[in-house]
C-alpha cells in the first residue's frame, strides 16, 4: 500500500511539474488558442494571423507533451507500477490464500522455482514452441506473400479470405484445433485413417510431444497472415524499374530473387521476425485453450506456467519470481533487438 501511495505521489508530482512547465511557457497563448477553437470563422483576418505566428514557436515546445500526456500517464500507471510491484513480490512470501502472512523471504521463491522437477522441461518447451512457430510462420507467410505479389482477378477478395485468421481470437482458433484433433471424434484422425497413413486413432492432445505439436500448428495457422501482410507490403515497395533493368541485363529469375528481392525485404523481415518472436513467446492463450499445459506439463511454456502457478495455487510470490526470470530474458532480448535493428537510432517504427 505504501508503495502505491509513493508511486502515485511521484506520478502526481511529475504531472504537476509538467503542467506548471507547460503553463509557464504558453501562458500568454492559452486564452487566445481556446477562444479560437470555439469560433474559427470569426478569427479570420490579419490580427489573428499576426497573433498566431510568433506564438507558434513557444507553443511548439509544450504542445507535444500535452498531446501525449494522457497516454503516457495511463501507461506509466498501469504498466510501470505493476511491473515494480511484481518485482517486489518476487522476493516476498506472497500467497493470496494467506493475506496476513506477507513478508520478505529473500531468494526462497527462486530456490523453489528451480527446485521444481519440471522447470527444465518447460524451458525446453518454450524454446521449441517459439522456434518452430516463428520458422513456420515465416516460411509459409513468405510463400503466400510471393504468390500474392502479382495482380490477378479478385485479389482483394482472396486477401480478405486468406488474411482472415489475423482477426480471429486465439480462443476460437484454439477451439477449432482442439476439436479437430480430438482423439475420439476428431476429423484429423478420421482423415488420416481414411488415407491409411495411420491405422489407429491417436490421442493427439494426451500424448507428450504431439500436444505441443498441435499447439504449434495452431500458432502457425494464426500467424501466417501477419507475416504475409508485412512481407507483401515490402515486396510491393520494390521499384519495378530495378526488375526491368535486371531483365535487360539478362538476369535469371533465381538470381533476381536472391540478389534483388531478398536484400530489399531483408530489413522488414528481420524486424517482423524479432517482433513476432517475442509476441509468440508471450502469448499462451492457445495453450490454455487447447491443452492447458498437459499432459503433465509437456506443452507448458514459461508464461503459461506462470499463469497456472498464479491462479491455481494463488502463490503470487512464486509466480512473480518466474516473472522476474521472464523480465531478464526480455531485457536481453530487447538489447539484441535494438542492436540488430538499430531502432533507437532511427527513432522509428
Amino acid at each position: 500500500m505504501l508503495i502505491l501511495v509513493l508511486y502515485l505521489l511521484g506520478v502526481a508530482l511529475l504531472c504537476a511539474l509538467g503542467i506548471w512547465f507547460i503553463g509557464r511557457h504558453s501562458r500568454h497563448s492559452r486564452h487566445g488558442r481556446f477562444s479560437h477553437g470555439k469560433n474559427p470563422v470569426r478569427t479570420h483576418g490579419t490580427t489573428s494571423r499576426r497573433k498566431n505566428r510568433p506564438r507558434l514557436g513557444v507553443q511548439r515546445k509544450s504542445e507535444p507533451y500535452l498531446f501525449l500526456l494522457p497516454t503516457l500517464l495511463l501507461l506509466l500507471l498501469m504498466f510501470g507500477y505493476p511491473l515494480i510491484n511484481s518485482f517486489i513480490m518476487a522476493f516476498q512470501n506472497y500467497k493470496l490464500t494467506a493475506p496476513g502472512k506477507i513478508y520478505f523471504n529473500g531468494l526462497d521463491n527462486f530456490r523453489k522455482l528451480f527446485g521444481e522437477s519440471d522447470i527444465w522441461l518447460i524451458i525446453r518447451n518454450s524454446f521449441i514452441y517459439v522456434l518452430i512457430s516463428v520458422l513456420g510462420q515465416f516460411l509459409l507467410g513468405m510463400t503466400l506473400a510471393l504468390a500474392l505479389n502479382k495482380k490477378f482477378k479478385l485479389r482483394g477478395l482472396y486477401q480478405a479470405i486468406v488474411f482472415l485468421p489475423w482477426s480471429l481470437s486465439a480462443f476460437v482458433i484454439g477451439l477449432m484445433h482442439r476439436w479437430s484433433f480430438n482423439g475420439e471424434y476428431g476429423v484429423i484422425n478420421d482423415m488420416l485413417i481414411k488415407l491409411s497413413l495411420i491405422s489407429e486413432k491417436i490421442a493427439w492432445l494426451g500424448t507428450p510431444g504431439f500436444s505441443l505439436a498441435v499447439v504449434i500448428m495452431a500458432m502457425i495457422w494464426m500467424g501466417i497472415p501477419f507475416f504475409a501482410i508485412m512481407i507483401l507490403a515490402s515486396l510491393q515497395s520494390i521499384p519495378i524499374s530495378i526488375y526491368e533493368a535486371s531483365h535487360i541485363d539478362g538476369c535469371g529469375p533465381l538470381r533476381r530473387f536472391f540478389q534483388i528481392t531478398i536484400p530489399y525485404i531483408k530489413p522488414t523481415v528481420i524486424v517482423t521476425i524479432l517482433l513476432r518472436t517475442i509476441w509468440i513467446f508471450n502469448s499462451f492463450d492457445l495453450i490454455v485453450v487447447i491443452t492447458n499445459g498437459g499432459p503433465a506439463n509437456y506443452s507448458q511454456t514459461l508464461p503459461s506456467y506462470m499463469y497456472t502457478k498464479a491462479f491455481s495455487s494463488y502463490d503470487f510470490g512464486l509466480a512473480s519470481a518466474l516473472g522476474v526470470l521472464l523480465m531478464a530474458v526480455l531485457v536481453v532480448y530487447v538489447t539484441v533487438f535494438l542492436k540488430t535493428t538499430r531502432y533507437n537510432k532511427a527513432g522509428n517504427f
Binding site: 510491484n85 513467446f281 503470487f316
Partner: peptide, 11 residues
C-alpha cells in the same frame, strides 16, 4: 509491446 501480459496481470 514486448512485456508479457501475464507479468502485468498478476500485480
Amino acid at each position: 509491446q514486448m512485456i508479457p501480459g501475464i507479468l502485468v496481470i498478476i500485480p
